[in-house]
Structure formats: structure tokens, C-alpha cells
Amino acid sequence: MVTVDTGVQLEVLDWGGRGRPVLLLAGSGNTAHVFDDFAPRLTGLGRVLAVTRRGFGASSTPAAGYDVERLGEDVYQVLVSLDLPRAVLIGHSIAGQELSWLAVRHADRVGGLVYIDAGYRYALYRPGILENVQDLRTRLEALEAEIAKPPRPPAELSAAIQAVMGDALEEVQRDLEDLRTTPPFPGAPPAPAAADLRSVQAYQAWTRKTMGFAIPEAELRWQRDVRDDGGVGAQRAPSAAARAMGSAGAQRFTSIDVPALAIFASPHGLGPWAEQPGVDRTRVDDFLRFDTRMTERQARWFERRVPSARVVRIPKASHYAFLSHAEDVVREIGAFLRMLP
């Protein structure tokens, strides 16, 4: 337990290993134990640790401090308290915002960043439709003034139009297409049968068969009630911290100036359940096409705005790519770490 603020301690797990510190940050709703099966795969690359953010698991649950500024400062305090110089930070999902905050505020403590399906708008801001429409309006006014100038050769006019407009029109068209074609989620996996709930191991076997991966036991025990007889009970209520994080607002990170690897699950995999007979394949395919278009839009934005970053796609990986496609993720992280000074 590491003290990071007055009356606030965070749970930190340490799997050992030698060399460069590697610190894992979980997504919202998870604790550091979500990495129990994954982290040991990295110990050949450095000393591997993970932190449970405030409000979750065994960490303290204060009433406040769930904005990215404070959450990022919590991670910084862990780095300082444990003397972890130039650590590689690996974040899943919403932890991408903490990675980007640390890259901006404490770049000297960061040796590299790895975003595991975490490089979305909360980690690298891409303008939304309102901003894109406003930008387009401004550019159209400038375009009107440009066209009103004395006649000039077509090639010169074409270059002037491109300089004024950029890709503003295309961005708004993409926004409108996304909003007009958003499909419903194509259903849900079947509920586990009584036999699937008789033990933690049976439940994990069911999730592997249904979702394509299993949550480690210690993490599962934070997510669901486990009865005295070992059976798996109901899902626990979501932590109030998750709601607090959602309402705290996000910062707009527009650049990342430390070495970075961004892993996107693209196209995302819904899991084996979506391939079973009786599932509406049309709805599944429509959703996956839309999801891939949205994911790729952000992945390409990451490539354009952070040209020094390595951006990788893992096809049909779950959002929990480090569980569903652990070997692929470990391989990419290993290659990235070997490139670092």
C-alpha cells in the first residue's frame, strides 16, 4: 500500500523482474488484479508492477479526487515513492488519460507509454462534430474571400483552395456519416447456466467459451460475489468511483512527446458468442463495420498527430486485448521496449 495523498493509499502489486520499471494501469471498473495472468509474461522485460487507482479494490475510497489531474498525480506519487525512474507505463482503456497526463506533466519520469485499446479521445483529443462544424464555417468564409480574388490559373486556385480548406469538409462528412449510421449493439452473450456458476473455475471456463478470455480469479472476486461454497453469485454494483470519473470531465491532450506504442483492437472481436447459430449476423456485421470505422478514425488520428508513435492493430482482439490476445500484446510491447534508449 502506497500513500499518495492525505488519507489515501493505493494498492500496488509487484511481480518482480529485473531492469526497467514497467507499471500497469487498469481500466475503469478494474483493479490491478486484472493483470494477474498477463503481468508475469512481462517479467523478462523489466520489473513489473501494477496499481489500483483510488476508489477501486483494496485502494482507499475518498469522496473526491477522480479527475484526471488527481488520478495522474496519484500515479506520479507511486513512481516517486517506489523510486521507479523512467518507467514504462502501460494503460488499458480509460487509463490512457492518465498516461497522457503523465507524459505532459512529468515526462522526465516516463520512459515510454503503451496504450492498450486506450488511445481514444480521452488520451489524444480529436475534435467532435460541433468543433468541426465551427471550423468548417470559418474556412468557408475564408474560401469565399479566396474565390472572390482576381482570376488566376486553375492549378494556383486549386492549391489556394486546398490551403484554405484542408480536410475540414471531409471531417464534417465523416461526423455526419457516423451519427446517421450508428447501429444498435447486436445483442448480448447468453447468460451462464447454473453449472457455469458452481465455481470460479467453471465460470472462467464459460467466459473463455463465450467471450474468448477469462478474468483472473482475484479480479473476478472484486466484480462478483463468491459464495462460501465457492459458487459465483451476482455482479457487484459498479463502484461510485467509476461514475465520479465519468462526471469529472476530461482534459484535451493534443500531443504526446515521449516514446509511445498505441495498440488498437481493430476490428474488435465480440467473442465466440457472436459466431453462434441463432445470432443475427446482419446486426453483428453492421455493428462491427461501424465500430471498425470509428476505431480506425481514431487510430489514423493517432498516427497523424503523434508521428513518432508506433500504432498497431490487432484484428478481432477484445477490448481486453491483453487477455484475449496476450501473446500478440506481449510481442508488441517487447519490440517497443527493445527500441527504447
Rank of each mutant, 00 (worst) to 15 (best):
R221W: 09
G187C: 10
P183I: 10
T138F: 06
F38K: 00
D229T: 04
G166S: 12
F213T: 11
R310D: 09
P216D: 08
L84G: 03
T292Q: 12
F185E: 13
S59R: 06
G246P: 05
E177Y: 15
L130K: 10
R208A: 08
Y125V: 08
L130W: 05
Q204N: 11
W301H: 10
Q298W: 09
D5R: 09
A188Q: 06
T31G: 08
V104S: 14
A244E: 06
A168L: 09
V4C: 10
R180C: 06
D225K: 12
A155R: 04
E217V: 14
V12E: 02
A195N: 00
G249I: 10
L82T: 00
K316M: 13
V104C: 11
V312T: 06
A193V: 10
T181F: 12
R305N: 15
T292P: 02
S247C: 00
G96A: 06
S255D: 10
G166I: 03
A248K: 05
S239R: 01
Y120E: 14
V80F: 00
A107P: 12
M245G: 04
R293F: 04
R252L: 06
V279E: 01
I256A: 07
A205E: 14
R18S: 15
E332S: 07
S318M: 10
T295V: 13
Q162W: 05
A335G: 12
G57K: 02
E177H: 14
L71C: 04
R126A: 06
R283G: 10
G233S: 07
I314M: 08
A142C: 12
V22P: 10
G249L: 03
R281D: 03
G16L: 03
R109M: 06
A95C: 02
V279L: 01
E219K: 04
L82M: 01
L261E: 02
L82K: 00
S59T: 09
V110K: 00
A107C: 08
P238G: 09
E332Q: 15
A317G: 15
I333T: 12
T52E: 01
R41Y: 00
Q201V: 09
R20N: 07
A193W: 02
V51W: 04
I215Q: 07
R252C: 13
A248S: 12
G233C: 07
L169H: 03
S60T: 11
I94R: 12
E11H: 11
M294N: 07
E171K: 07
V226R: 01
A64S: 14
A262P: 05
P127M: 06
R208W: 02
Q9H: 07
G112V: 14
D229K: 01
Q223A: 15
F56E: 11
R310L: 04
E217K: 03
E146Y: 01
P127I: 08
R198P: 08
S81K: 01
L45M: 09
M294T: 09
A309Y: 05
E303I: 02
T52F: 00
P192H: 03
P277N: 03
Q204F: 09
P216L: 05
H106W: 11
G19F: 04
S60I: 05
F38M: 01
H106T: 14
A205S: 09
R18V: 13
A32Q: 03
P184Q: 14
A260H: 01
A240P: 03
S324A: 04
G55M: 05
G7H: 00
E131M: 11
